[in-house]
Design a binder for these strands. Structure first.
Lengths: 241, 241
DNA sequence: GTCAATAATAAGTCATACTTTTTATTGACT
DNA sequence: AGTCAATAAAAAGTATGACTTATTATTGAC
């Protein structure tokens, strides 16, 4: 049973409101949600052109975009099929946001948590050995923002997210940059799934956990950084139940 | 100094030799290789249409595909720019294969190794707790194939790759399926970078290491599986140095 | 019953004209 | 001189219609 979608505004939310992106968005959402099933054949151009009230040009460019993300495959004489989920590029920011928009099924939440547990602790460990002085300063700043006692709910989430993204960046490995949207979606998903109003005690504990990550990175201690991040991610997973 | 590209045939190698895919391929390679620099403006349609000898339709669909992968961004009145590498979807199979085709810079090899080290041990740990009987059988089969004393070079690589992909699949988490191409590219990269003819002793050691992974997964021992996979990946990284 | 010619279908391509968005320029007005 | 709004220009975006190619199913000869 999917949780309700969160009101969070994802970075990926494109202001590009062209006809093409409207069609991409709607079809992408239909596919990810299962309204257009895996392996199924899309309606022919004629029907889709009529459904969306666009030209063949727009429709084809939209299908090209979805094909590029692994969601569709066109074959002559057959038509355009929805590819099996195993072929989707789940790390694609759009695909991730579509998953977020349909609400988070517990199963999906679990899978997201497992990815965070694989990636973020390693990112923290790498950051500990490779962070630049400037990156460390950025991390300290984010930790400082979280530590503000009368911080609002939204600002806390932003600071939390900012810190995690800063860790990923400080790993100085471009692959960890590519998972920024995954971190964003996963973190927001877990915070959304947990109680909307966290107790002051829990907030304080969270701040301390995050501070431990930054301290370990400051001390250039990869193992401590990894452990500290594992604790944070585990807390997030537990909170989301 | 990039290593030479390997002769390996990647799964992603599309037989789709349409005009569009030719343009996508060529431009994608130019961008990834840096021949078309990050942040730079692409030539106007007129010039690209002439360069590739295609229609505007084909050119636009190619640009849409590259935009979908995060490589390009179009803005009215400005033109189409190559986005900074931080925005590329490095997990996209095509983007990965383009990286492979230009040869592996030591830096890129290091980053790939770090990703493997983050992902594969966790996949092995998850597989240990979640693998189905059928998946276990598949793993045993791959290990058996590697163990053949008079196996050829190519068949050994195939079995090696097959086993790693089977572990990722047995994690029963769709995100780990999405990194199949990453595993493939990284593994081939490391085998390519290491000595082309491995000694019999090293091959035997490799077989034993892989067997340990399968045994741990069979025994439903996540920690042992994680450790065994870490050893394998570390060996690959060391060999590539 | 096999196999090759062929018909049918949907994707792919081309050419052209037009619309919208965004930025730079121009020129009036304070 | 400096501000600001009207306007021009450039490039992306959209629309339309006709045509080509690839692939599969059908047909018919052997």
């Amino acid at each position: 049973m999917p949780q309700r979608p969160s009101p969070h505004q994802y970075q990926t939310a494109r202001p590009a409101r062209s006809h093409t992106s409207r069609v991409v968005d709607d079809l992408g959402l239909k596919i990810v949600s299962g309204a257009q099933q895996q392996g199924s054949l899309l309606p022919g151009d004629g029907e889709l052109i009529e459904r969306y009230g666009v030209s063949r040009t727009v429709l084809r460019e939209a299908l090209k975009t979805l094909s590029a993300k692994g969601l569709l495959q066109a074959k002559a004489r057959i038509g355009t099929r929805v590819r099996p989920r195993a072929d989707w590029n789940l790390f694609d920011p759009d695909v991730l946001v579509w998953h977020a928009r349909i609400g988070f099924a517990p199963e999906f939440l679990k899978h997201l948590g497992e990815m965070r547990m694989a990636l973020e602790p390693e990112a923290a460990a790498l950051a500990a050995s490779r962070r630049t002085p400037g990156q460390l300063q950025g991390l300290e700043d984010w930790a400082g923002r979280m530590d503000n006692p009368d911080i609002g709910q939204q600002d806390f989430v932003d600071a939390d997210l900012g810190l995690h993204l800063a860790v990923a960046e400080a790993a100085n490995n471009p692959f960890f940059l590519s998972i920024s949207t995954l971190i964003e979606v996963a973190l927001v998903a877990m915070l959304t799934a947990s109680s909307p109003v966290e107790s002051a005690a829990r907030l304080k504990a969270s701040v301390a956990q995050h501070r431990a990550i930054v301290d370990a990175i400051a001390a250039r201690d990869p193992d401590a950084a990894r452990k500290a991040m594992q604790a944070v991610v585990q807390t997030g997973i537990d909170g989301a139940r």
